[in-house]
C-alpha cells in the first residue's frame, strides 16, 4: 500500500510536468461554424485518406467562437483555419491583424435557409413580407406606427394562408443561421413596408433593431442549435414550422417539406442560381503565416477547391453544398495561389 501510494503520487506530479514541453503539431487544426462543419470534416477525412498527411482535426465551435480562437495568435497552439457561415467582422479582423495574422478568405459555396413543416401539414407559399409580419416583435400598424405584433394565425396575415396558429421553431441568437435568417428574410421583408423603408433611410440602426427582433410572445420558439432536433419536433407537431439549413431538408424529404418563398421553392437549383431568396455564402479563413509551417495545409486547401470535391460530381455537392459559379471558383483559386489576404477597408 505504502509503496503504491508513493508511486501514484510521483506519477501524478510528473505527468503535467512532462506535458509542458512543447509539441510539434503535425496535423491541421480547424475550428468554427457548425454549418460549414459537415463539409470541412468531409474534406478533412478524404484528405487524410488520400494523402500522406494526418487527418485534420475539425472542431464545431460556431462562427464567433471559432474566430476568437483563430485570431488569438500565431503558432502551433492556435488553429490554422476558421470556418465561417458569414464574412469575417471588422472587429474580428482587427483582432487578427493586431495579433499579426493575415487571413486568406476562401469562399466555398452557398447554403439555403429553409422554412419547413411536416409533409402532413398544408403547404406554405410565403413572401418575405409575410414572414416579417409573422415573426417580427413589432410591425407597422394601420397608421404606419409600430405596434406589438397582433397576428396570431397565418390567416390573420393573409386570407390565402392556412388558418393555423403561428408557431415557428428556430435557432437561438448565437447561431449563424439565425443571423442570416434575420438579415435576409426579416430585413428583406421589413424593407417592403413604406414606413419602415423611410425609417431605414433616416436611422439605419433603429430600422435594424425593428427588423432583427423576433417575437417573444410564443409565436417564435428558440429550439436550440441542433437542427436535427427541430426536424424531429416538426414531425411531431404538424402545425409548426421550423427554420434550419438546407441540408437537413435534403436528408429528410420523406417527413418535411420546404415553404416556397417569393415564388421559389428551396431546392438545389434555385439556391444555386440565387432565385431562392434566403441563402448565404459560406467561407473559411486560413492563416497565411501558417501556410509553409503546418504540414499539409496547402494541400488541404487544394483538396477543398479541387474538382473532386467541388466539381459537378464532387463529394461536397453530394452532401448538399451549393457550389460557387465557375467564375467565382476561379477567382477563389487565384486568390489562394496568390495568397491574397483580407485587409481592413
Amino acid at each position: 500500500m505504502n509503496k503504491s501510494i508513493k508511486l501514484l503520487a510521483v506519477a501524478a506530479l510528473a505527468l503535467p510536468l512532462m506535458a509542458t514541453t512543447s509539441f510539434a503539431r503535425d496535423q491541421i487544426q480547424i475550428v468554427g461554424s457548425s454549418t460549414v462543419f459537415p463539409f470541412s470534416s468531409l474534406v478533412a477525412e478524404k484528405f487524410g485518406k488520400s494523402s500522406s498527411f494526418n487527418t485534420p482535426v475539425v472542431e464545431s465551435t460556431g462562427t464567433g467562437g471559432g474566430m476568437k480562437l483563430f485570431c488569438s495568435g500565431i503558432g502551433e497552439g492556435h488553429p490554422d483555419i476558421s470556418n465561417a457561415s458569414r464574412r469575417i467582422k471588422s472587429s474580428e479582423l482587427e483582432a487578427c491583424l493586431a495579433a499579426g495574422i493575415n487571413p486568406i478568405e476562401i469562399k466555398v459555396g452557398y447554403d439555403g435557409i429553409v422554412l419547413a413543416n411536416s409533409v402532413d401539414a398544408p403547404a406554405f407559399e410565403l413572401t418575405k413580407q409575410q414572414i416579417f409580419l409573422a415573426l417580427a416583435a413589432k410591425v407597422p400598424g394601420p397608421d404606419g406606427k409600430l405596434i406589438d405584433n397582433p397576428n396570431m394565425t397565418w390567416s390573420d396575415i393573409d386570407a390565402s394562408l392556412p388558418d393555423v396558429k403561428i408557431e415557428v421553431l428556430g435557432p437561438p441568437p448565437t447561431s449563424g443561421t439565425r443571423d442570416a435568417f434575420v438579415e435576409l428574410a426579416m430585413e428583406g421583408g421589413a424593407k417592403k413596408f413604406e414606413s419602415l423603408a423611410a425609417l431605414r433611410k433616416e436611422d439605419k440602426k433603429k430600422f435594424q433593431a425593428v427588423a432583427h427582433s423576433l417575437r417573444e410572445d410564443g409565436a417564435f420558439i428558440e429550439a436550440g442549435e441542433n437542427d436535427n432536433l427541430i426536424v424531429q419536433k416538426l414531425k411531431a407537431n404538424p402545425a409548426a414550422l421550423g427554420i434550419f439549413g438546407f441540408s437537413f431538408l435534403d436528408q429528410n424529404e420523406d417527413s418535411i417539406k420546404g415553404a416556397i418563398i417569393n415564388g421559389a421553392a428551396p431546392d438545389f437549383d434555385n439556391i444555386a442560381d440565387g432565385s431562392y431568396g434566403i441563402s448565404r455564402a459560406l467561407y473559411y479563413y486560413v492563416k497565411k503565416e501558417h501556410m509553409d509551417i503546418i504540414p499539409g495545409l496547402k494541400e488541404y486547401n487544394e483538396e477543398f477547391l479541387s474538382s473532386k470535391a467541388m466539381g459537378e460530381d464532387g463529394y461536397l455537392l453530394e452532401k448538399g453544398l451549393i457550389p460557387l459559379t465557375e467564375a467565382e471558383l476561379a477567382e477563389v483559386v487565384t486568390g489562394l495561389t496568390e495568397m491574397k489576404t483580407v485587409s481592413l477597408k
Partner: peptide
C-alpha cells in the same frame, strides 16, 4: 471538453495521451 477542443471530428484512432 468543448473549451479545450475535444468536441471535434477526429478520424484517426488516438494512440497516445497527446494525440487529438
Amino acid at each position: 471538453l468543448l473549451m479545450i477542443g475535444m468536441v471535434a471530428f477526429i478520424v484517426d484512432v488516438p494512440t497516445g495521451f497527446t494525440d487529438p
